[in-house]
């Protein structure tokens, strides 16, 4: 009995691993396959291969869904919010980690409280009106930046704790101004965590749907997520086209994920296993 168990267990484990991977992968494969079918073939959304690859689906979708515009909107929002949040968060995390006064600790606490706080979209609209940012691209970038700050500060703060202070002091002795010290000496040392935070924030903001849903009513400013949802509403029966649109919306994050996998997993599991 024991012997059988010993031989069977690894095989069983491997089988389960493959089944699990398949369960996670099949829905994505389904969309990829159907994005290349004709309308009739895609009607059933089956896993079978298309008779002939309908690459034209993609050009139809790009045109009908105004995807070029949406793609650049998404890129603008994601890049803007990523750069903004990294810059603001690293400056704040740096000061709060290096200069731990009671007040600074309190401010750090206040910032990372945002990890748990939910957004009140109704009153946020009022703030957007006051600041004349409602229905503007800058407005979306600022909101996305604000909502990315707490977790970014948390991750960067944790990392700076492990960066030795000796270099700071050497910098000061050499006569660096505080801002030069940060940009020229400290920032390069933060590269690993900044790459992780950048990737996480980019993927998060690219995937964001709820903010533009509330605050952008002009379709020229829609990001990919809102465009694909709207496209789905108009072309619900054309699953081949909807699938193609889904692929185009998802591809950037999948590519970044596959390239930056190492950073993503380390960032998303950070702080959780130190104990």
């Amino acid at each position: 009995m024991m012997g059988v168990n010993k031989a069977l267990l690894p095989a069983l484990r491997n089988a389960v691993a493959w089944i699990l991977s398949a369960v996670m992968f099949v829905p994505l494969l389904l969309v990829a396959v159907n994005s290349l079918k004709t309308k009739a073939e895609a009607n059933g959304m089956k896993l079978s291969l298309p008779k002939a690859f309908q690459w034209s689906n993609y050009s139809i979708v790009i045109e009908e869904g105004k995807l070029v515009r949406s793609f650049f909107n998404s890129l603008l929002y994601a890049c803007g919010a990523t750069v903004g949040s990294i810059l603001l968060a690293s400056l704040a995390a740096y000061v709060f980690s290096r200069h731990r006064t009671r007040f600074n600790k309190g401010m750090y606490f206040y910032l990372i409280m945002g990890i748990a706080m939910p957004t009140n979209f109704v009153t946020l609209m009022k703030v957007m009106q006051w600041t004349h940012l409602l229905n503007t691209q800058l407005g979306i970038i600022l909101i996305l930046t604000a909502s990315s700050i707490p977790f970014s500060v948390f991750l960067i703060h944790g990392f700076i704790g492990g960066v030795p202070r000796e270099l700071d002091e050497a910098g000061v002795v050499d006569g660096c101004s505080p801002i030069r010290l940060f940009l020229a000496v400290v920032m390069p040392l933060l590269k690993p965590v900044l790459v992780t935070v950048a990737i996480l924030n980019f993927m998060g903001t690219w995937s964001d749907f709820i903010h533009p849903l509330y605050f952008l009513n002009n379709s020229d400013k829609w990001p990919m997520t809102l465009a694909v949802y709207n496209f789905f509403g108009r072309f619900q029966v054309n699953w081949n086209l909807v699938s193609a649109d889904i692929v185009l919306t998802t591809l950037p994050v999948v590519v970044i994920y596959l390239l930056g996998q190492r950073f993503i997993i380390s960032g998303m599991t950070a702080g959780s296993v130190k104990g």
């Binding site: 997520t225 919306t249 998802t250 994050v253 994920y257």
Partner: peptide
């Protein structure tokens, strides 16, 4: 993989 796909998608 599913964790990085937009929830909307």
């Amino acid at each position: 993989m599913p964790s990085i796909i937009p929830m909307l998608v």
